[in-house]
Amino acid sequence: MAHEISFIFNGNAMKMNIEDHWTLLHLIREELGYTGTKEGCGSGECGACTVIVDDKAVNSCLYLAAEIDGKQLTTIEGLAAADGTLHPIQKSFVEKGGIQCGFCSPGMILSAKALLDKTPNASEIDIKEAIAGNLCRCTGYVQIIDSIKAVSGYGEDEPHVVAFKTDEGERGE
């Protein structure tokens, strides 16, 4: 059964006919053609398909498209400014090594955004909690956590990254 829904997609008002059985992931990738949102498992276990609905990070593979009616949807394509300026979280992931193969990055960045929008002073524990559902096989999460910590206002005295010296790289809690 098809029916019409309205929603805000990355700041633009949308009206479209959808099928009841579509997932939000299908709507984004196959109907709207935005491929930044990834499918890593299709069962809500890896977080690669994370998008933001209103203020909440959700797994779009488990979220029915029909549920988006009347809501605001943000995908990775909606994060940078119109002139291409990166969102501070994107910039931080780029600069601090938060990205390797990149497949988890869109979901990871959006989970971080949902966290920091709500809790600007997120602690390391908050960060780990917020991205616990976003799996990454490349980075070991260390530099991802660094990337998010660097834009969180939590504890100025807490070192984010201990500088790498010529003969010694060091980091700690």
């Binding site: 394509e77 994107q90 990205i99 390797q100 990149g102 990055s105 869109p106």
Partner: peptide
């Protein structure tokens, strides 16, 4: 930073 990091961060 990785050359492709911006493209990956923006999807």
């Amino acid at each position: 930073p990785k050359l492709d990091a911006v493209d990956k961060a923006t999807g």
